[in-house]
């Protein structure tokens, strides 16, 4: 059963006055309800790709359909932005209003939703992300993780089918990071929202359904996280790290210990090591 929600065919994007394209010939499909992680070092084009998904940038080549829609006219752009929400990296720079619930309402207000409907959806969204108690608070009083949850609520209120997280945990402390990541996983599992999770944390990427590694504007590797991380050498060559246990497994294997492929966590490693004779 195939139900693609993002379809990219040879998508290219080049910034004006840039020597080389930031995104080059990217072709991929994302199924509705998938949790896809995108890894890549700085400048690999992953953030540019995120902005293409949200129609903040329009492809300079190829075709990109998001939720069945190609952003050609201005109205299409707004529809794409509504159906494909985006949570940015810096929690401070994406909150517009001086009160949590007002910020949450911002997107719906822009769409011209009737006030009663906005009220209802804002309350729902804040409850959903666990920020209902802080509805009347000032964003400047919140922690980074809480601010990101407010940002997620603002996107959720618009009832998107896809949410793109563009390194949304990069500036958070470990607690906030786990909170936001778990929230994204729960929205994916329970509400069937497709998640595109852009990150440089291997531990987060390892938990995705599918993993794409971008390098110099192209998709360099793609597949289930276990398969992708198994190619330890290639990943290292792309300037990325693999989860610690994968590195350990690779070294043990080189030293002659017979370990199966695809060990990613400490627990899995412990189990496999105990199985050895």
């Amino acid at each position: 059963m195939s139900n693609p929600i993002i379809e990219a065919h040879n998508v290219c994007f080049q910034y004006e006055d840039a020597a080389a394209p930031a995104v080059k010939d990217v072709s991929l499909t994302v199924e509705a309800g998938e949790f896809v992680a995108i890894l890549g070092r700085n400048g690999s084009g992953k953030s540019t790709f995120a902005k293409l998904l949200n129609a903040l940038l329009l492809p300079t080549g190829g075709t990109l359909r998001v939720n069945g829609l190609e952003a050609r006219t201005e109205d299409d752009c707004y529809e794409v932005r509504r159906s494909c929400g985006m949570v940015f990296q810096n929690p401070d720079n994406q909150i517009v209003a001086t009160i949590v619930e007002e910020d949450c309402a911002f997107g719906l207000e822009n769409l011209g939703t009737p006030p009663e409907e906005i009220r209802r959806r804002v309350d729902e969204a804040l409850l959903d992300v666990g920020m209902a108690e802080q509805a009347g608070a000032s964003p400047s009083m919140l922690s980074g993780g809480q601010k990101q949850r407010v940002a997620v609520a603002g996107v959720l209120a618009m009832r998107p089918r896809i949410i793109v997280f563009d390194e949304s945990t990069a500036m958070l402390d470990p607690v906030g990071r786990r909170d936001v990541f778990e929230l994204a996983r729960r929205l994916n599992r329970e509400e069937g929202i497709t998640i595109v999770w852009i990150t440089h944390f291997m531990e987060e990427a390892a938990l995705a359904d599918r993993l794409l590694v971008m390098d110099r504007g192209r998709v360099a590797l793609a597949g289930a996280p276990r398969e992708v991380f198994a190619q330890v050498d290639r990943i290292m060559k792309l300037g990325l790290d693999v989860p610690e246990m994968m590195k350990l497994a690779a070294r043990l294997r080189r030293a002659g210990v017979k370990l199966p492929e695809g060990i990613m966590t400490v627990d899995e490693m412990a189990v496999e090591l105990c199985r050895l004779k």
Partner: peptide
């Protein structure tokens, strides 16, 4: 922009 802001026209308030 990502949250569909396009000025005051057609905007409602909560």
């Amino acid at each position: 922009d990502a949250r569909c802001y396009r000025g005051g026209a057609g905007r409602t308030r909560m």
